[in-house]
Nucleic acid binder design. Structure first.
Lengths: 125, 125
DNA sequence: CTGCATCCTAGAAGATACTG
DNA sequence: CAGTATCTTCTAGGATGCAG
């Protein structure tokens, strides 16, 4: 079931979204409430993401319980998202991942490229 | 670039393969050489994987430097794989991931309705 | 402002058959 | 034994446009 967790965070935009929300949570000294981000704020904070993807990922993360969502029924619409405690508990995982990536990432020869790797030695015993 | 790392291990069979090789490395007291696994041994250890997928993933992991590969030019063919030190260094990451999954995984409401039928493979904890 | 619906393409992954 | 080679299906993800 470690794969279920991976499926959760391995999507292209899941990590940026989580980190953005985590930053928002850390940036504000909200004592009793978590400072939420609006949809448009998230969209601006992650410029390259599509609205569709942002929506989809937020739904997935919400379903998993990592992200909270509140709709303010008003005009104009206002929907806020925040990282739940469960979502925040992912930080050690992401940090560990980040540590490894920082250390070994630079050396990562692109993994899934179809580049014919010529430098594979065929040891003939 | 944390995403590059994720791309590496987020593939369906990457984790089972790495864990299998890691188990092989831990299981033997090889002092100067790492105990390798043959292609067929890997295939048997991960019964549900396709040959094509096994080959593809091994190539990707090899390119990334996580897995070593040695071909013995002989009949019958014999190709051995082992986890490199770099590959082994991923363990803390996977362990952290596993810890989180063990604690919060049971509560994960299906994120993308991804039926993980490979759960049989993950007795690593 | 939010976010659903629709169409589209590239790549992941499975099944099966064949080869040195 | 250790792979390639096809063929097929499925889904992630991008590009719109429309609606409440």
């Amino acid at each position: 079931m470690i794969c279920a967790t991976l499926d959760l965070i391995a999507n292209k935009w899941a990590v940026p979204i989580i980190l953005t929300l985590a930053r928002a949570r850390a940036a504000s000294p909200a004592p009793n409430g978590v400072p939420p981000l609006r949809f448009s704020e998230l969209s601006r904070a992650i410029p390259l993401i599509t609205q569709k993807e942002l929506t989809k990922q937020l739904r997935a993360l919400e379903t998993a319980g990592l992200v909270g969502r509140r709709v303010h029924a008003a005009v104009p619409p206002k929907v806020e998202y925040w990282l739940t405690d469960l979502g925040l508990s992912l930080r050690p995982v992401l940090d560990e991942l980040g540590k490894w990536a920082a250390k070994n990432g630079p050396r990562l020869a692109r993994p899934n490229s179809k580049q014919a790797d010529s430098a594979r030695q065929e040891a003939a015993e």
